[in-house]
Design a protein around this nucleic acid. Structure first.
Lengths: 135, 135
DNA sequence: TAACAGTATGTAATAATATAACATTTGAAA
DNA sequence: TTTCAAATGTTATATTATTACATACTGTTA
């Protein structure tokens, strides 16, 4: 398959911020990013928040609203994503993006009597992960 | 039907905060509450945040995470609620709690291969409400 | 009643998260 | 090479939320 969709070129700051988030195995907070990129010349909150905003628009990362933290998108190979679902363990706080067709199909086609057309959603499930259930 | 479950008695501050939220037809922010209750003797953030926390535990209000704002629970007649869904208009910002059995049944029984047991969820749909679709 | 436990309150200080505003620079396209 | 959108740098400030500690209220039970 040829490269139909040209990979968007991230700017310098966007790439720096994205790298931090992608390397982490847990959601990363904005000020934790800021702290970690001081050595790379990013010194002020707006620089981080602007990169985050752009990365979200591009679908490269998502915000986990209940945690005010950011994760790299793993489910959609970086297409622009409007539909996100996460599972969050209430003990160890592990956050995992849920990739489940039954779920996304259901939610993408959900309609209710309000007459509202839903284009986008964010779902956060809370519970106990396998490990924490045992202990 | 007799009153099986005794109505929980809200404390003074809890009642004051709840009244503000309940009377509002839109989500209310913590500092907006704080401003509005100064005349009633509530002077400091922790007083408001403590009341909010308790009201959430009781299921009397919910937090709309994407807005950092609070709404009164309308769907469950104040049972303790672990499952919340909202629709949010991207133009007029109107927030409505969704009460839809098909949706809640689906989500309450949702399981995926992760082995995680979900006890609780929060879902936020974004789109255009009827009014804003027309304009 | 006195002792207690649990819940709620009051208060000051500060931490954590996010944006406004403005000047400047960069990069790609016409 | 001008032009325009996007990105950057910087200072200041706005907004959201918590810590820490002292005190008071409420109901239970020894």
């Amino acid at each position: 398959m040829t490269k139909m969709q040209k990979e968007y070129n991230l700017s310098k700051n966007q790439q720096i911020v994205f790298d931090i988030i992608e390397k982490s195995n847990e959601p990363v907070k904005a000020y934790s990013i800021l702290f970690n990129v001081k050595k790379k010349g990013i010194k002020a909150p707006p620089q981080v928040y602007r990169a985050l905003e752009k990365l979200i628009k591009l679908g490269k990362i998502h915000k986990v609203e209940s945690k005010n933290a950011f994760v790299a998108c793993k489910s959609s190979n970086c297409e622009i994503s409007k539909a996100t679902a996460f599972s969050i363990c209430e003990i160890c706080e592990k956050v995992t993006e849920i990739a489940n067709n039954k779920l996304s199909n259901f939610l993408n086609s959900f309609e209710d009597k309000s007459g509202m057309k839903y284009k986008k959603y964010n779902l956060e499930f809370f519970g106990l992960c396998k490990k924490c259930k045992k202990s």
